[in-house]
Design a protein around this nucleic acid. Structure first.
Length: 576
DNA sequence: TTTAGGG
DNA sequence: CCCTAAA
């Protein structure tokens, strides 16, 4: 915008339009934001066309006398096609705007606009917008309406989040008033009132002057700009990649942000959007949904080279710590560094966690985790999710809450980077590695179980027996934001299968071997699982009939084994 | 809410 | 891991 183009009204990159609704906080407004916004815009496209046409018809009268400010092209450009939820800039005016927008910071929270019902906004602008053709002798209401509609996102996204929160109720008084103010101005005011600019555009007195509103400024600017650019060259440019990317971005970001504000009580409500978003992506993710086996395979196949980063244990918390890329598909070295730092944090946390794994004050640790994450500025999202998930997980596994959890996890998942595995003291640890994140796509919420986790689970089962998943979760997995009680249950089920302690009899040798092929579990763990399976047959009530030879240390194969007996068994196993 | 079990 | 029925 410093390129000699008219910068009318855009001093310091902040448009007065900010003032339309709220005090200009710090929002940067860009033309983009004004011109491109959410998907609902197509609703207005028709009107826009109409306006464009009607305007074109009348522009003669307006522009002839002057410098063709209102040349049809200009209007067309302003009302240029609306496609796929964004304004396709396609002619001089737009190109120009685009150019000078490039320097702008793209609004981050553009999608906040859905805080205000577009319908309502539109309605308002229409109803409050008197015919603007006072000077033009045309009914340009549609034009104004659309213009206001366009303005809306600008308005909205410039509101600080908190402000938005407050104002997201149906257009508040201020907004309406503002609209009213704006609408009160005749088109002439809007277009040509301000004479302080030196652009070739004429100062058509005939259009009269009314105290220029904020809106006037912008509009003025737009038109002036177009007026100047028009005579020069006509270019048709597609939106830049950045333009597109940035535009698409805030939407997903928005989903995340929304979650930040959602309290547990309204999780369901607010995550609806996210849910939908997720669903939309399911298609692209479907191909990479790994079954458990696949996960295991992945775990095994991860090159050991990646184990080099030992500072980043593949602890669940590490998982959670891995912050959001904020939709940034490519991880830059710098960011990698950052993530590594996170890993360090996770490591620290983990150490504490492990040392206190069986002891008390899980809650405190949890808080620490969250706090630590919160300290990382852009990790808030993760932290919040983490907490949320944990909350629901700790006290409930209700489907509804799990839904939110899933979403959180889903988001997290997509953001996760490779997490080098931590080499366990297990002679045999196949290095559960956090799966390489699909840079582009989300993947199913699969967080591989680490041997440490499995051990904890086993310990939990041994302490509390099977079926007490909630308790085990609370006691041993309180620091693992993910791993709901259901997860524990599922894992245990899988462990039983893997250990072959269940239904092994019917398994063919070959099949068993095949299973072993992908089974990443250390023998010691499998053995413990088998032992426990004998002690606590999982499908409760179902008596085990196998494992007599396994229970070499068991005094009795009956299910009446005592806890002390069982612990003895465990000790002997661990002694191996 | 928690468990169990199917998908 | 997800979902849901059942307790």
């Amino acid at each position: 915008m410093e390129n000699g183009s008219p910068t009318i009204g855009f001093e310091d990159g902040t448009i007065d339009v900010d003032c339309l609704l709220v005090e200009p906080q710090n929002g940067h407004v860009s033309m983009d934001s004004a011109m491109c916004f959410n998907e609902k815009i197509p609703d207005n496209s028709i009107d826009m066309e109409d306006v464009s046409c009607s305007f074109g018809l009348t522009n003669t009268g307006i522009a002839q006398g002057g410098d063709e400010i209102l040349d049809r092209d200009v209007l067309d450009s302003i009302c240029s096609e609306v496609e796929d939820g964004y304004f396709r800039l396609q002619n001089d005016f737009c190109s120009m705007g685009e150019e000078y927008l490039l320097g702008f910071e793209f609004p981050e929270s553009i999608t906040n606009l859905d805080y205000i019902s577009r319908e309502e906004a539109l309605q308002t602008s229409v109803s409050y917008g008197p015919p603007l053709g006072s000077c033009l002798n045309i009914d340009s209401t549609p034009w104004k309406s659309n213009l206001f509609s366009i303005m809306e996102p600008t308005i909205c996204h410039n509101m600080p989040e908190t402000l938005v929160e407050e104002e997201k109720k149906p257009l508040n008084e201020d907004i309406i008033d503002k609209f009213h103010d704006i609408s009160s101005c005749s088109f002439g005011d809007v277009v040509l009132s301000d004479e302080k600019y030196t652009s070739p555009s004429p100062s058509n007195d005939e259009f009269g002057q009314v105290g220029p509103t904020k809106f006037n400024k912008l509009d003025n600017t737009l038109l002036k700009m177009s007026a100047e650019t028009l005579p020069t060259q006509k270019r048709s440019r597609k939106p830049t990649q950045r333009y597109i990317d940035e535009l698409a971005d805030p939407i997903s970001r928005h989903s995340k942000k929304r979650r930040e504000f959602s309290s547990s009580s309204t999780v369901k409500d607010k995550t609806l959007v996210v849910k939908d978003h997720k669903k939309c992506q399911m298609g692209s993710r479907a191909m990479i949904l790994p079954s458990e086996e696949e996960s295991s395979i992945i775990a095994i196949q991860v090159p050991f080279g990646s184990l080099a980063h030992k500072e980043c244990p593949n602890l669940p918390s590490c998982d959670a710590v891995h912050g959001s890329d904020r939709g940034n598909p490519t991880i830059k070295p710098k960011e990698n560094q950052k993530k590594r730092d996170d890993c360090m944090t996770a490591l620290d946390l983990k150490k504490r966690d492990e040392s206190a794994a069986t002891s008390a004050c899980p809650k405190k640790r949890e808080d620490d985790v969250i706090a630590a994450h919160l300290r990382k500025g852009d990790r808030q999202m993760t932290a919040v999710n983490l907490k949320k998930r944990d909350e629901s997980a700790a006290t409930s596994a209700s489907p509804k809450k799990r839904e939110g959890d899933a979403i959180a996890a889903h988001l997290r998942k997509g953001e996760r980077r490779t997490i080098p595995s931590q080499k366990k003291r297990d002679e045999y640890d196949p290095s559960f590695d956090c799966p390489e994140e699909e840079v582009s796509g989300r993947r199913k919420h699969h967080i591989l179980w680490t041997t440490a986790e499995v051990r904890k689970l086993i310990d939990g089962v041994s302490e509390h027996g099977v079926g007490r998943w909630s308790r085990i979760k609370k006691l041993l997995f309180s620091s693992s934001a993910h791993r709901t009680s259901v997860d524990l249950k599922d894992k245990w089920r899988n462990l039983l299968k893997a250990s072959g302690s269940q239904g092994q009899g019917s398994l063919q040798v070959g099949e068993r071997r095949r299973n072993l092929a992908w089974r990443p579990l250390p023998k010691s763990i499998l053995r413990r699982v088998r032992e426990l399976a004998n002690v606590y047959p999982y499908p409760k009530g179902r008596k085990h009939k196998i494992g007599a030879r396994i229970n070499r240390d068991s005094p009795d194969i009956s299910t009446d084994i005592t806890l002390s007996d069982y612990r003895r068994i465990l000790r002997s196993i661990n002694g191996d």
